[in-house]
């Protein structure tokens, strides 16, 4: 949509000012995230650029906030918890979610609308409401597990948070995997069955490789949901299950420490890596299914 050579002066002015406006909005979108990164190398405990930093003086920069993150037991506990909870929650939601998505993609499913509504509901209901409901119910569930089953208190705490996070990730798995299954050619499974493969072999050798990109990106969504989730953890978990977002939230609300910016930078790098992975998977999936890459 270039500018035609016969454009009037007014059109030219509008054309360029529109680009400037869009540039400013993009700046608004990206600037806060970009600003965090250099600040995390601040040698001072400030949340702003020091004169040394502006002069690009190496004295003004240091890795001390990163060092703090990797040595402070509070942050290490939070990191450890995040790395325990998010993968386990993801495994649960991906396993159950993929099976259900395959079931839902069959042609004759009774009550499909209602089932879909229930499965998607954790995404629809605002987190604060899910957290409130879970707060009431999971406390009783925890008491029951500790009292009747005699399980360890810390273990029960993890189970509660993992279950809560798994259910929050399920809608994302359902949505991405059903979307992938829409383009799945059913005659492939029939052909496999025709050649003597049982349903299990067909699933693992024919269907799974083709829908794998959808499953992985659904899993990544579920992972990021759990990894980034703080409201439910605050309500359902206790201090020994605190995750990275919890520690950041406490840090932002109470004692402000620039270590948060170091953590934020690490998380931004991780999210860039995840974004790239999902994008590559989407393209691969579309190529595999013979769609034009979009």
């Amino acid at each position: 949509m270039g500018l035609p050579p016969y454009a009037t002066l007014g059109q030219r002015i509008w054309y360029y000012s529109f680009r400037v406006i869009c540039g400013l909005i993009f700046f608004f979108l990206v600037a806060p995230i970009v600003v965090v990164m250099p600040l995390s190398f601040n040698a001072q405990d400030f949340f702003t650029f020091t004169p040394e930093m502006l002069r690009l003086d190496p004295e003004g920069y240091s890795l001390k906030h990163y060092r703090d993150f990797f040595t402070n037991p509070q942050w290490q506990l939070a990191l450890k918890n995040s790395l325990i909870i998010a993968p386990l929650a993801t495994i649960i939601s991906v396993t159950l979610g993929t099976l259900a998505a395959i079931g839902l993609s069959q042609s004759h499913v009774p009550f499909k609308g209602a089932i879909m509504a229930i499965l998607i509901s954790p995404m629809i209901v605002p987190l604060i409401i899910s957290a409130t409901g879970m707060f009431f119910f999971y406390a009783q569930l925890g008491n029951w597990m500790e009292g009747t089953l005699g399980l360890d208190k810390g273990f029960v705490g993890y189970v509660k948070v993992i279950l809560a996070h798994a259910v929050l990730g399920i809608p994302f798995v359902i949505i991405t995997v059903t979307a992938t299954l829409v383009g799945f050619d059913r005659s492939l499974t029939r052909a496999a069955a025709n050649m003597g493969a049982g349903p299990v072999t067909t699933f693992f050798r024919v269907q799974m490789p083709l829908i794998l990109p959808g499953v992985i990106s659904g899993g990544l969504f579920a992972f990021i949901t759990s990894f980034d989730e703080v409201v439910v953890v605050l309500f359902v978990g206790s201090a020994s299950q605190k995750t990275l977002p919890w520690q950041m939230f406490i840090g932002l609300r109470e004692q402000i420490s620039p270590t948060i910016l170091a953590v934020a930078t690490i998380l931004v790098v991780i999210s860039i890596a995840l974004l790239t992975t999902v994008e590559l998977l989407r393209r691969r999936s579309e190529r595999l299914r013979g769609m034009s890459p979009g």
């Binding site: 649960i92 159950l96 979610g97 099976l99 259900a100 395959i102 079931g103 839902l104 069959q106 004759h108 499913v109 009774p110 089932i115 229930i118 499965l119 509901s121 954790p122 209901v125 409401i129 899910s130 409130t132 409901g133 879970m134 009431f136 119910f137 999971y138 009783q140 279950l163 809560a164 798994a166 259910v167 399920i170």
Partner: peptide, 24 residues
């Protein structure tokens, strides 16, 4: 068969999500 595939997840969501909302 379709329902059997969906059932575990449906049960899971009912217990871990719908029941808590109902309890609220």
């Amino acid at each position: 068969r379709a329902l059997a595939l969906i059932a575990p997840l449906l049960l899971f969501v009912l217990i871990t999500f719908i029941v808590p909302i109902a309890s609220m």
